[in-house]
Amino acid sequence: MLEVKNLHVTVEGKAILKGLDLTVNAGEVHAIMGPNGAGKSTLSAVIAGKDGYEVTQGSILFEGRDVLEMEIEERARAGLLLGFQYPIEIPGVKNIYLLKAALNAARAARGEGEIPAPEFMKLVREKSAEMKMDPSFLQRAVNEGFSGGEKKRNEILQMLVLQPKLAMLDEIDSGLDIDAMKVVAQGVNSLRNADRAILLVTHYQRLLNHIEPDRVHVLVDGRIAKSGDKSLALELESRGYDWVVEESAA
């Protein structure tokens, strides 16, 4: 589904990713881990198309399409969705508007008509209940005045409504207490199915207790230094990152 090959990325002239390879297939959950500054967030930002990141080499293919040639919104409509580490506040714009506009944009891209209002309301109510969010949240401006946990739940709610093919979640666990994390993890787990892939970017193993990954990758100095199954995450938990850093330097 997603194929990243030899990806080199610079930010303000500084090389961050230095030849990263990654393949994610439908149905899989991948976790990208690594020490601070290794380039974890850069990877998801580049895939989503954020400005300020220059790809100097390599390619990103999503279902065979060249992602780097696609506009930001095209990527989203094609099913590539990023959950933000720091969700943006948009004063005055209600959550419900954002959800509806985004959903209809994706449907239009697939050649489908707009979702009928009753159907949309039913869907949104259902999904907010899953995220344990009061329906009144929908009437509030996007992320404005939300607590950290509410913002993260809101990110997952968007995923549940928009049903992406590849959901990338950037540090979705940061700033969450254990109860909020359980709700978020439950939401992510409900996204799991045979047609969908999930890419988790995280610094801590904690999240992976709740969302079990199929593959774990350790990102060190702009490259994947080590890959393994979920046991790798546990090993990182007990031993830290230093040994991988040393191994990769050797």
Binding site: A48, E71, I72, E73, A76, L81, I88, A102, A105
Partner: peptide, 12 residues
Amino acid sequence: DQLFYCRARGID
């Protein structure tokens, strides 16, 4: 970043 956020949700 507000624009990016919306666009990353598929809104042009």
